[in-house]
Design a protein around this nucleic acid. Structure first.
Lengths: 245, 245
DNA sequence: TAGTTGATGTGGTTGGACCACATGACATAG
DNA sequence: CTATGTCATGTGGTCCAACCACATCAACTA
């Protein structure tokens, strides 16, 4: 994309120039997490470009999970630097899945790969594991399907974070988000949700127990079987017509 | 982001509406790879929004590697659907690295993870391996440092593609792109490029040979050592001041 | 026939205007 | 003095109308 960090004499669209300026501010530490960009009008004047171009640049940064735009004044107002790479990557992946250039099966396989690695790497004393245990407790309260799935997401994410690799956690989260729609649709295929939920809960406990025991290999095996089993049972590859590519 | 596929009564920015419309066209197959979006003015009129909003949506899709905008008329003109998820993810990751929210070390570790898996999964008869072999031949011609590195990128990508998982290949490519700048800077730290290049070439051959032998385990071990060794030798974590965060 | 010229259609850019929203200062009624 | 309402201010969100640069193609011309 605008990988031309430097202002080559090459043709460069105006919003790319703005993007470059902002990226430099980020790299140089003049813009930090939680910091606010200059107002659109001010930035436009400062860079001697139109407000339109500034806005296009901000739209891109927003899509990448780097900033959040808020109207009004005070606290939540203005364009603020955030750090949400997962939602950004998730959207991108989801769109490419929509064009059928990233098979859902490949996404699932990648998720298995990353999550297996994560649990095999997780330290038994990682604080995220306590959170994971707490989430399991909530899942025992027989929540509604939607709530159960939300807790499931949080549980798996907590496991991934216990490995201590931010990139793996981020990618895991975005993969999950990219096929969220699929997962929800697939759940409708399940013949007996109650028994499935019961099985999932016990599998979750087994995985967490393996991690807590420091048995990474066992945890990896269990988590791989857990994920693959779910998608197989839900009928990945035999989705109903309205969700089939 | 605009994960609201449906037009909730919630406030929805106009460009998100456009985004949703385009995504639906993609999902429904009305827009296919290589196809062209309606002209900005036409789309604006059709959706009853301003051209500005249409343009903001297109900027986002462009940033995600889903479309490419071209001026003029005829062949390369108009906004056409492409499929370049790697560049998109790469840009996003690079920006988040710039904000120091994704450690370079984590990126390298993730790359090792994915690439190890890829070579252990690669089939010995994958056509990409022939391409990889050809690239190795080119690297023997003692190219300049920049060319060597470009060939190196292509070689590793070919290896990754041999595993047949589009998501893994894509993420690999984007990880590579995200730290491209770092890698180039690190290379300057190398004490003796000629001997390093010689070593890299022989390691490449050993990896490819292991894959061709169908010995995935050996290939994985070799590729992990290869990547980690390079970054260690180049001094990851002790970059010169101008590249240090 | 060969070359030039202009019409057409595309994205790129700009300036200005207005809106919705959130805040804070200020005036006013109680 | 307090509480309430009102208005000025600053933010992003949206729209419009115009112009530019560029690439193609058809019509015209030498």
């Amino acid at each position: 994309m605008w990988s031309n960090h430097i202002n080559y004499y090459l043709s460069m669209r105006t919003h790319e120039l703005v993007l470059g300026w902002i990226e430099k501010q980020l790299s140089d530490g003049h813009l930090v997490l939680g910091g606010r960009l200059p107002a659109e009008r001010a930035l436009a004047e400062q860079l001697e470009v139109s407000r339109t171009s500034v806005r296009e640049a901000i739209r891109i940064l927003e899509a990448m999970g780097l900033v959040r735009a808020g109207v009004g004044s005070g606290k939540d107002a203005g364009t603020v630097v955030i750090a949400e790479p997962a939602t950004a990557l998730g959207s991108a992946l989801r769109l490419h899945v929509a064009t059928q250039h990233l098979p859902v099966a490949d996404i699932v396989e990648t998720r298995v790969l990353l999550e297996s690695w994560a649990v095999s790497r997780a330290k038994a004393d990682a604080p995220e594991l306590k959170e994971a245990a707490r989430l399991l407790g909530e899942m025992d309260a027989s929540p509604a399907v939607d709530d159960f799935l939300a807790l499931d997401v949080a549980f798996h994410l907590a496991l991934a974070e216990a490995a201590g690799n931010a990139v793996v956690s981020t990618i895991m989260g975005s993969l999950r988000e990219a096929i969220e729609g699929y997962a929800a649709a697939l759940t409708a295929n399940l013949p007996d949700w109650d028994s499935t939920a019961h099985r999932l809960r016990s599998e979750h406990r087994a995985i967490l127990e393996a991690v807590n025991d420091g048995d990474g290999g066992r945890a990896a095996t269990l988590v791989a079987a857990h994920i693959e089993g779910y998608y197989r049972e839900a009928g990945l590859g035999q989705a109903p017509a309205e969700t089939r590519p």
